[in-house]
Design a protein around this nucleic acid. Structure first.
Lengths: 346, 346
DNA sequence: ACAGAATTCCAAACCGCTTTGGAAAGCTTT
DNA sequence: AAAGCTTTCCAAAGCGGTTTGGAATTCTGT
């Protein structure tokens, strides 16, 4: 275990001042090319890297981004969707030499967590995950003057802010329309929690498509909960046991679809013949919708790519806070799989 | 947007020196209780929190832990198992007022990433994920003098280091024995990548149990790959198509088991009657093995809890580097589900 | 050969905190 | 009232970088 080399020591070794060494390493023009090379090779040879905290203190920039994940007493911490998004964002940060700070805080301390982040100057920016229909974080962060990007949106009013979202409403309208085109009339929606902004928009899309064909939505065919395999299984089982069961499901995630599939299979229903499923697909690395050809007919929206783009937006905003906040609305890709077929005859 | 309050300003407001204010806030005894209260209320009123980088620079401690996740060109970044572990660790860090630094780096730059972390003094400790059978990181971190805890183990030789692992070998021996007890003779193993230490140990456990009954392992009933749903599906499908197919599967994760289940169901086999599955279960929040009663017969090893414990080990080691590195070997819990039955007669 | 410009380097201030070594003030003792 | 303790506070020196304002040196042009 050797002590860490620091700037003073390195400059002593080189017989130069700290100023010159610092400038040589940071690419300032006031230093001759010869000394720059000499300094750089010495830095590598002695394994010198500037102390992150000293550098941060001097420059006033943390070169770090925070992702705050609320942890309710339940289990919804780092779900696979967050994980994939964070993976994408992390790639971008790594390339740009930014650190990622992951804060996992009890849900009721989330606001405090943001305030602390700002007051302590721990990070240069914040990524906001999973916005609610009404989300206080957006106003808070604007007030704190901390650059941020929201993955998703929240409501529709208020001053503009930077966000990146998929067009949930259109995607779910499209999925519903696809099932309607196949003749399905009893289409069930297994949605996420509808205090989440994205889930509400998805429901609106579903209702839009039904309304466009003059079909009344049946409340018995609509459920909303945290997305998990057994939620999909239980909700689908319950609906299939109705006197007038659905002939198709629209699910809000692949995991829910898998649960729904299990429910169908348990009742001996064959997917694509007796029953149809259209699902949203976040394109998770560890849970793919089929290897090469899609298994479920799906609306795909690649989370990893969302993470990359959102991170790039945030970094750009930090480097140049000037321009008005940007927005990106991405369309989901429609994938035809093997999980859909025409509505079975009566 | 207001500027951040700092110590100097706060001390001016209070008419005290920075020293006194700092000591009042950090609980030193040299300050009267009256001024301490006066200082504390003023700090809250003016929303003062010490600048993280200045504090770190002065104390020499970062109050941060790094988790480095290698990102190969494939997709194995933040898999759900990592995510769950990190969630558990993050809870502990938050309670202890530590930050979590998540570094996502290209796999070939992982060693550099650790060196940089050490040289820049970015963190006080490191968590090592997913150790390989031969893992260079352990020697490197020892050499760098950076406290670390390994989640898992690597090989068996070399100087001791801190780790937390489940008893993979015993767990898989037990799972195999359970199937043997049910009369199964053709038991397939769908393992993870066997350059990972945990996967090799699991294979050993499987072989142990077979050997204990004098049964030769059939290479056709053994596969190993990155754990995903479609790997489970494809490997199981392939094996079921053999002239002499397996009557039971032992899978290395719930996700693989779900894929295997799909393969069985596609061939019309009923789980627990025609075919049995025993799986390892990491007890992931978002992918539970049944809601209240287990669906799959499983060896459960709660990842979240692993994360908590490993984080506690690491923090303890940072606070007091004195004692010899600790190790924790946890036993998996055996859960009886509905996925197993006696071997079908010939 | 010399003034003036350009190049190359450095001493010192600063970022915001902690912590050391006293100093000043308040209380007992004798 | 002086001496000796506590109690309470402060000035100043780090921590390890970046950056400003000059100074010393070398390079031009005449």
């Amino acid at each position: 275990m050797h002590h860490a080399m620091n700037l003073r020591e390195l400059s002593h070794i080189l017989g130069l001042s700290q100023t010159t060494v610092s400038r040589a390493l940071n690419g300032y023009p006031e230093v001759s090319e010869a000394t720059r090379i000499r300094v750089q090779t010495a830095a590598i040879a002695h394994n010198y890297r500037p102390n992150a905290r000293a550098q941060g203190l001097a420059t006033g920039r943390a070169r770090a981004i925070a992702h705050v994940l609320p942890m309710s007493s339940g289990h919804e911490v780092l779900n696979p969707v967050f994980a994939e998004f964070i993976g994408g964002a992390g790639e971008v940060y790594a390339r740009a030499d930014y650190d990622m700070l992951l804060s996992i805080v009890p849900a009721d301390q989330e606001i405090t967590a943001y305030r602390t982040l700002a007051a302590r100057r721990s990070v240069d920016g914040v990524m906001v995950h999973a916005p609610l229909v009404e989300d206080r974080r957006i106003a808070l962060l604007s007030e704190l003057g901390l650059p941020f990007v929201v993955h998703g949106r929240s409501g529709s009013d208020g001053p503009p802010y930077a966000w990146l979202d998929m067009n949930n409403r259109r995607a779910f309208a499209r999925g519903t329309a696809h099932l309607l085109d196949l003749g399905h009339l009893r289409i069930a929606l297994l949605n996420g929690l509808e205090r989440m902004d994205f889930a509400l928009r998805r429901k609106q899309g579903y209702l839009d498509a039904l309304a466009a064909r003059g079909i009344a939505a049946d409340p018995a065919l609509h459920d909303s909960a945290e997305m998990s395999e057994d939620y999909g299984f239980e909700a689908a089982s319950r609906m299939l046991a109705l006197p007038n069961p659905p002939t198709a499901f629209l699910t809000s995630s692949l995991i829910v679809a898998i649960g729904a599939r299990r429910a169908c299979q348990d009742r001996g229903l064959v997917l694509g013949r007796d029953i149809s499923i259209v699902t949203h697909d976040d394109d998770l690395g560890y849970f793919r919708n089929g290897r090469d050809t899609p298994y479920f007919t799906a609306l795909r929206s690649p989370m990893r790519e969302h993470g990359r783009r959102a991170a790039e937006m945030l970094l750009a905003q930090i480097v140049d806070p000037g321009p008005a906040p940007r927005q990106q609305l991405l369309e989901a890709e429609f994938l035809t799989g093997q999980s859909c077929g025409p509505a079975p005859g009566p």
